[in-house]
Design a protein around this nucleic acid. Structure first.
Lengths: 356, 356
DNA sequence: TTGTAGGCGTTATCAT
DNA sequence: ATGATAACGCCTACAA
């Protein structure tokens, strides 16, 4: 079937610099010079070029430019779980400063699956992103190879990788978890449960460490039965919570070491017919918009999401501007999370005469 | 300062096809043929090429490929508010199917700002994305121009644009809002408040319409005082809620027409010393993971986020595969949202003898 | 089956 | 100040 001549041509070639050059009656080099302001051009010709650009509707072809310059002006962002408001906030911040500096962001979600991460890494690498910011789902050989090749800046966020020489921005997880558990202890709790994440994740390990430290300080022995393994997902969190809650000697407080497991925990408490905080106190990692609008208002550890993203981008930009100058030793920036005390933790044992 | 010879070369050139060809002692064309499987190659030479690829660590340079083929295999995704779990879920779904078909996703957040949207549009357009999926912050001339140029597929999601000839996938907002308000009416409510979004957004307008329809059906006059204007943000929602709640004759139920304004509403109720649902019933648009783990469990309108994303990508892929065949008339796919009844709405007036 | 050569749209180096 | 012209890395007729 023939194409109808009258319809708005769906696929005419996009105008290029040569179209502009022809119309303006100047050389290609001149057009390039005015576009990039890379060489002096007489006012007269400059105006002609600018006019021509407008007339033909010329737009830079960033692909061609990238091929020539070797820079795509886009950074790759790999996130383990885009469903998690913590990451969402970080993405937002990264995308904002990236754009502000003329960079685009290519997003990939590994869904906490190292295999998917591997594949996505390849996709972004092929597309020649200038740098990568990664919240990894767990180390893979290709990731390590990528970092070791030192061909492009890689900055890790949120999760660290052991013995990998690259920059990173994370929070002080042991201090954060310690703060939360210390607080629980200060309220009188002695049987404090923990819901952890996969031990392949540095965050999970560090938070576990913080939990142990706080307990040790208080002279409380750690009981394995009180730490429930989940994988930073709400379904897992639920399972772990149910385990903890059905213990013969139930914990009086539980610390959920990320926000999704916090959901699972709250759901578990509800399904067990228990009430928070009357029957059990809860603190959890990561703050979110809803944390204070329902009952109980949740006590959380709030992470500086905006700063994490901004810092990661700052490091990336620094590398990109140094143009691959010999980078100094890998540096890991540690930020602090802050305990936001609300209503989900109460004294234990409950003071007499307190209504539920 | 000289570069030290011993350090791991930070910026050696990435290997290209010619490096592979040399090592394998074949021609460039042969290498290309095996990489793209675009022509028959003898087993012997194929093996040599594959080996060489591995040995030099060759990776396709998608930029160069794109320049030649005219396709970047990446789709641009513009989202109005990445902080909103609804969009987050849609992004997730889009990115998943995109990846599954070998496409990358370039993400931009307009933050509900048409001006930012304009700028980001340009950024993605320059980078030659193959298609665009847009949850627009409001129409701008460049967006309309982009669509009218018909140079690349554009599919709108969530929000429609008046009189714009392009595909879209949205939900039936009037039906959804009508369902929610009908439900409130069926519970006995007559003074039902509404928190709307910016009237430049089709979703806000349609949801308002649904609200009006349900009221009309029930023979209830609509009172302007009962509809609070917000802009789909939680702070605005809070303001609007406070207005509604301080009315001399307070509504007995409020419908928040998106999730962020729902937060604001719940916060407002709390700050007013009111309780939900005892003092006031609440229903709101968009479901989210936390909606049922706190008190009260929220009654919401759940959107088929996964399907929305998948459908949008399906349309995009269809266009991309047709290779710009004359596309039929713009088609808008309407999906249904579903009312999920939980505990935040109760009968009015309250039956006697009901404890709070 | 394999190789040669031209071009995708830019940028950048060189003469002029 | 301006204009040819050669890359950038890949794909693809076309020729051998």
């Amino acid at each position: 079937m023939k194409r109808l001549g009258s319809q708005p041509d769906p696929d005419r070639r996009a105008p290029t610099m040569v179209d502009v050059a022809k119309l303006a009656e100047v050389s290609l080099a001149t057009v390039s010079a005015v576009i990039n302001d890379s060489a002096p051009v007489s006012a007269d010709r400059k105006k002609r070029v600018l006019d021509a650009i407008r007339r033909v509707g010329y737009q830079t072809n960033a692909i061609a430019r990238s091929l020539k310059t070797g820079s795509t002006k886009t950074i790759g962002l790999m996130i383990a779980d885009i469903t998690n408001p913590f990451f969402t906030a970080v993405i937002h911040s990264i995308q904002e400063v990236a754009y502000h500096h003329g960079y685009g962001v290519m997003l990939c979600c590994s869904d906490e699956d190292p295999e998917k991460e591997r594949l996505h890494l390849r996709l972004m690498s092929d597309r020649m992103v200038d740098a990568l910011i990664i919240a990894t789902a767990g180390e893979t050989p290709p990731l390590r190879a990528l970092i070791d090749s030192r061909r492009k800046p890689v900055v890790l966020i949120d999760r660290l990788l052991d013995g990998v020489a690259t920059d990173a921005v994370v929070i002080d997880n042991v201090a954060a978890a310690r703060d939360a558990v210390r607080y629980l202890v200060s309220l009188g709790h002695r049987r404090i449960g923990l819901i952890t994440g996969k031990s392949t994740l540095s965050t999970a390990r560090e938070r576990y460490q913080g939990y142990c430290q706080a307990l040790a300080e208080a002279g409380i022995a750690i009981e394995n039965a009180l730490v429930g393994a989940a994988r930073f997902g709400s379904a897992d969190g639920y399972g772990a919570a149910m385990g903890l809650l059905s213990l013969a000697e139930r914990p009086t407080a539980i610390f959920a070491s990320n926000n999704l497991s916090g959901i699972g925990l709250m759901r578990g408490i509800k399904d067990s017919g228990l009430r928070c905080p009357a029957d059990i106190s809860v603190a959890c990692f990561d703050d979110f918009e809803w944390a204070d609008v329902f009952e109980p208002r949740l006590t959380t550890l709030v992470q500086p999401t905006r700063a994490i993203g901004a810092q990661a981008m700052a490091i990336v930009l620094e590398h990109l501007q140094d143009g691959g100058a010999q980078r100094s030793a890998a540096r890991v920036v540690r930020m602090r999370a802050q305990l936001r005390i609300r209503d989900s933790c109460v004294m234990w044992p409950p003071p007499p005469g307190l209504s539920t």
